[in-house]
Every structure is written in C-alpha cells, then in structure tokens.
Design a protein around this nucleic acid. Structure first.
Length: 614
RNA sequence: GGUCCCGUAGCUCAGCUGGAUAGAGCAACUGACUUCUAAUCAGUAGGUCACAGGUUCGAAUCCUGUCGGGAUCACCA
C-alpha cells in the first residue's frame, strides 16, 4: 500500500472519529499543493463540509489537527478557504524514494487475468507504408506496451490485405511494363518497387480515361444524363464507373482478379512473388520502427471466414435473409441501420471477414479483449461489428474497442497514394536520422564514440523526435504534418527527454562507487524540486493505469515530458555531485537514478529508445 | 438530414472523474556555458478557453442550443 492510500485511510478515520460518518477513502481528492502555497499535498474539504455542518475552513482545521496528532505522515497543516494543505514528515520523502528505487518494474500494474489483442498497421500489399501508417503503428505499438505494463498479457497482430483489385493493378502494371524487374536485380526495396507499379497503373489508367473522354462512346454516356451537368465535373465523378464499364485496363485488372480467385497458377506465382517483395519491405520498416507482431493474418486466407458464423446467426435469428438470398442484420433498434453481412451470391464482405477474424483470433489466442487501431473514418463499421458480435453472444464481445485516430494530412491536403502524393515511412525515418545528425554535428558534442555508435545515437534521437511528435497528441485529433518544417529537436520533444536521461547517466558514470542509496534517511532539508520530483515519480503507476484505461499513449508522453522538465530545472539549480553532506548527496543521486529509470521505462512505453550519451 | 469527433496564445498542443491566479513548446526579444552534457535553464511578450444559456459554493471541464472544421451513413475495403 502506498503512503498516499494510507493517508487517505487515515483521513477517513479522522472524519469517522469527528462526525461518525463513514467516508470511502477512494472518494477523497488529494492532489499536490500548488507551489504558491505552503504544504505538500492538499485535501479538498468542500465536499466534506456537509458531514460537519460547519464551514469548509473550520472543517479543514479539525481534520488537520486530528492528522497532525495521529498521522505518521502528516507533520503540519494550514487551511485556506476549503483547502487543507498538509506538510509531510521528512521520512515520507526518503521512504517513498527508497520504495520507488527498490521496486522492480516500478509502475507495472498487478497481473490481470486477461489476454488483450491489439491489431494495428493493417497494410495493403500494393504500396509502401506511409505517414498515415506511422501514426497507426506507433499508436498500436505503444498501446500494446501500455497494456502490458498495466498487467495484461498482450498479443499484437496485423491483418495484411493481400488480395483484391488494388493488388491486381500493381500486378498487371508489372506484367505490362515491368520487363522482369525484381528487387534483387534492381536493388530497389520490394514495397517501393510494387508501389511504383501501382502508381504506374493509375497514371496509365488516367491517360486512357482522358483519351476516352473525347470518344463517341463518352459523348453518348454524357448526353444520356438526365440533367446536363458540368462536363469536367461529370467526368471527374464518372472515373470509377468508367473503370468498371468501359476501361480496357480496368477489364484486364478484373480478369486478373478472377484468375486469382480461380487460383490460376501463373497469376498465383506472380501474386506470391510480389507479395513476398512487399512483405520483406514491410519487415524492414517495422524493424526500423522497433515493432513486432505476435502473428500476422492474411486476408487471402481469412476472407472466406465468417460465413459459417453468418449461418449460425441466421439460425439464431440475429440475421435475416432477403428474397434475393443476401443476408442482413437489422440494427435500427440500436440506432443504426440495416447492414448486409453476406452478398446475394454468397460471397463475403468486409464485415463478414471481420466477424470471421475476430472469432479466429479468439480461437488462436483466447483473447478476451480486442483493440482495433484503425482510422476514425471506420467508426461506424466498428460500431456495427461490435453490436453484431454482442448479438451473436460472443464471450469477448463486451470488451472490443476501436482505437480511432484522426487522419494525418499534409499542408497540401490529404495524401493520395495512387498519385504518388505521400510521405513514405522509410523516407521520413531516414530524414529524421539525418536531421539528428546535422543537429549534433553543428553542436559537436558526442565525444569519443565510433562512427557506428554515433549513427546509432542519431537514429535513436531522430526516431525519438518523430515518435514523440506523433504520440504526444491525443489520437482523436487530426494532425497536419509538414515534412519541410519537419519535427523539432528542441523543446517539448523526444530528444529533450533523452537529454535529461543522458545527463543523469553522465552524472552516474562520474559518481561511480562513491555513493550508497541505503544511506539517505539523514537528509531532511529537501528543496521544492526534490519533493516535486518524488511526487511526480510516485504518480507513475497511476499514469500507466489511466493510460491503459483510456488507451491513451499521450498520457504517458505528457507525463514523461513533465518529469524530464522538472529534472532539467533541478539539474540547473542544484549541483548534485558537489553536494557536501553525505546523505544529501546519496539522496540526490538516488533521486536522479530513479528519474532516469522512470524516464527510460516511460519512453519504452512509447516505443522510444534511450541513448546513454548524446 | 441522422450519428460521431474536434474547436484553449500567431503556430503545435497539455489541462485527470468540476477546485486556488488557464499551462507547456515553437516562433520573437533579453540574459546564463573556465563549474555534473547549453538538444538545457531563467526572463519579457502573447488568452472573450468558438458563441449563448443552464446546473452550483465554484465551470475550459458537466447539460442544452448555435456557429465553424472534419468523418460517416455502399451487395468497396
């Protein structure tokens, strides 16, 4: 039991003694005292005044007096209006620090008997990963780390969309214009190579389309409109219909999809090859991002799943059949629409697959809790999915969560992969490392490291800047990313936090063998920074729990920044190694050591690595 | 039109279940490296918390409405 929980119990006891009223200790609000007032922690007495029938100020005095007399933690108190400011005994600070210092994995939550699955990334195999994926991946990875720290057992998965018309477009373009190029014979990273052909298909298709617009066929289509719209506007909107009805390339792509579905050997071979190229490329990117999946699911293998569950739902009366044979679910009573779950020709839809994969994962890993990291444009889809799973009475249905995040946009607007208007993940990662390098060389700091060590440091710094930049923001916010102005390396950033850590590491190297963390209790004359830091450190476990409950990496990011900021300030004002008094010096080193540990641990929850020097 | 998300300093964002005078960073300007790593620290300036009501001892926070931005409402994924 932490000292603060103990104190709350003592306060509840005091209230009981003074009024006979039972108060749940958890309902008491105890927060650290604002710096302009005397005291360490503040109890809000407004809500308690009604038990006493006295003014908040008087109540505060009564409770304060009682605590001062009987609490081992509280040394003194003062009241201002309805605020009871409590000052703690010196032992509170040293003992709390020692507890933090000696607890292994301080902050980690108690074991929860539940497996959580976090699904994220979920790329298509027709193009490389881009900035949008980066936000998704960083969020997913961080949430999985946070859930793990909160005490869950975590399974990470991705669902790879490796089938469908988009992939066929890349395949067709490669067949037509590829001249047998491969990653091996060209030296080009596989996902980029395939992505190039996806763009190639679309530029060729656009050419074909604009040529067609001058044809008699097009003229006929246009003049057939009931209302005569603006011609340019009409053709801009008609592109998709053209693809399906008139386009030569479109029909070739659809034929390829048909061949794929019939498992035509030559097509299968091409498909397998190109997928392997892309997936190898993805693995390299995941590696650079420091992300791993317990298991990958492939839509080519899972897209048929879900049909048997639809059958089951039909029997149970959860779904119903239309005359044309299509199967639907009616969610109007839950404030949603009717939704089709199986086509009239018996083939699956997106939702059918998701029903199937949820079930498959439950069978594979017995995951009772599932978190889907997917963009906010799919909120409705997941609302529907979760409602369906509830109606199908799946054991995991009540613990499914859509971690929805806002789109990442460029200053010029939305990214469009088919036009090649994207920020590629790999480019961005490299750019960040280069920027960290340029910045460091300008400063000329890192001393006697080898080139290899230095590059490793630059990579860590660059990645920290990128990751922190993205994770510090509430996921729900849309964000505009400007690749030119790029990500800062100073201020509220990843490197700022790394820098605090590096400073401590440097101190610890210099202090080696000259201190004893067990000898700190003699120190009593704490300054406000020291109390402040210990208070912040002891909030770490709560922060983790809260971040886990709300699926919110930004809570960790803000915490870690706050801690680093407080330490930087402390560092600039107090000379730690120069401290004369032995127990004070031990205390300060112990405090610094703990700060470093928590900074490292917290950054790890964001998927950010710490360099030992920079 | 229905539903959901967002709106806080010039810009990017914090602000926990309602609590004391709304906080950081960037950009601008001033200072601080012979002293544990200056990717730092200190300071100046910058606010009608979109707007209007309501709830109460007390509202950026909760409720209602309005306005602005976005998403979504396919036998696409």
């Amino acid at each position: 039991m932490s000292a603060l929980t103990k104190l709350k119990a003592e306060i509840a006891k005091a209230i009981k003694k003074l009024t006979g009223q039972d108060v749940e200790p958890k309902t008491l609000t105890l927060s650290s005292t604002r710096k302009e007032f005397e005291g360490d922690y503040t109890l809000l007495v407004f809500p308690l005044a009604r038990y006493f029938g006295k003014s908040p100020e008087e109540v505060g005095k009564l409770i304060g007096e009682e605590l001062k007399a009987n609490s081992t933690i509280v040394d003194d108190y003062n009241t201002i209006k309805g605020f009871l400011n409590l000052s703690f005994a010196p032992e509170y600070w040293t003992d709390t620090l020692t507890a933090i210092n000696t607890t292994e994995d301080f902050g980690k939550g108690s074991h929860k008997d539940k497996r959580v699955m976090v699904e994220f990334s979920s790329p298509n195999t027709n193009k490389p990963l881009h900035l949008g994926h980066i936000r998704n991946i960083l969020l997913g990875w961080s949430v999985s780390k946070i859930m793990d720290a909160a005490g869950y057992e975590v399974i990470t998965t991705q669902v790879v969309n490796d089938r469908g018309i988009a992939i066929c477009k890349s395949m067709l373009a490669w067949e037509k214009w590829g001249n047998g190029i491969t990653p091996e014979n060209s030296g080009k990273k596989g996902d980029f190579l395939v992505g190039d052909f996806y763009v190639k298909f679309n530029t060729e298709f656009s050419k074909e389309y604009s040529d067609w617009q001058n044809s008699k066929e097009a003229e006929a289509v246009f003049s057939n409109q009931n209302e005569i719209p603006d011609k340019a506007e009409f053709f801009a909107e008609y592109k998709n219909d053209y693809f399906n009805e008139y386009s030569k390339l479109g029909s070739e792509a659809r034929q390829m999809l048909l061949k794929w579905e019939n498992k035509e050997p030559k097509t299968m071979e091409l498909w397998k090859n190109m997928n392997t190229w892309v997936l190898n490329g993805f693995d390299q990117t995941y590696d650079k991002l420091g992300v791993r999946f317990t298991k990958s699911y492939f839509e080519s293998e899972t897209y048929i799943l879900g049909r048997s569950i639809v059958e089951e739902g039909l029997e149970k009366g959860v779904f119903y059949k239309e005359k044309d044979g299509s199967i639907w679910v009616d969610l109007t009573d839950a404030n949603m629409d009717k939704k089709i779950v199986l086509r009239s020709d018996g083939t699956s839809l997106y939702i059918t697959q998701d029903i199937g994969t949820a079930e498959l994962r439950y069978k594979d890993f017995n995951t009772e809790k599932m978190i889907y990291v997917v963009g906010d444009e799919q909120e409705y889809h997941f609302k529907v999915l979760f409602e369906i799973m509830k109606r199908l009475e799946r054991p995991y249905a009540n613990d499914m969560y859509h971690l929805s995040y806002g789109m990442v946009e460029l200053p010029t607007g939305k990214m469009k992969s088919r036009e090649g208007k994207v920020v590629d993940a790999d480019d961005l990662i490299n750019q960040m490392t280069l920027e960290a390098k340029a910045n460091a060389e300008e400063k000329g700091v890192i001393d006697d490291s080898s080139d290899e060590e230095r590059n490793e440091i630059y990579r860590k710094i660059g990645m920290a800047a990128l990751k922190f930049f993205i994770l510090k923001v509430n996921p729900k916010r849309r964000m505009i990313f400007n690749p030119e102005e790029s990500v800062d390396l100073q201020g509220q950033t990843g490197p700022y936090i790394q820098n605090a850590y590096v400073r401590i590491k440097s101190i610890m190297r210099k202090a080696k063998g000259t201190y004893d963390f067990n000898d700190i209790r003699g120190y009593k004359d704490f300054n406000s920074h020291e109390k402040n830091l210990i208070t912040t450190l002891s909030n770490y476990p709560n922060t983790i729990q809260q971040a886990a409950e709300e699926y919110e990496p930004s809570a960790i990011a803000n915490y870690v920044y706050d801690l680093a900021k407080k330490y930087h300030k402390y560092y600039s004002e107090i000379r730690i190694l120069g401290t004369e008094d032995k127990s004070a010096r031990n205390f300060r080193l112990a405090l610094s050591y703990s700060v470093a540990q928590i900074l490292k641990s917290g950054m790890d929850l964001l998927g950010i690595e710490m360099p030992e020097r920079m």
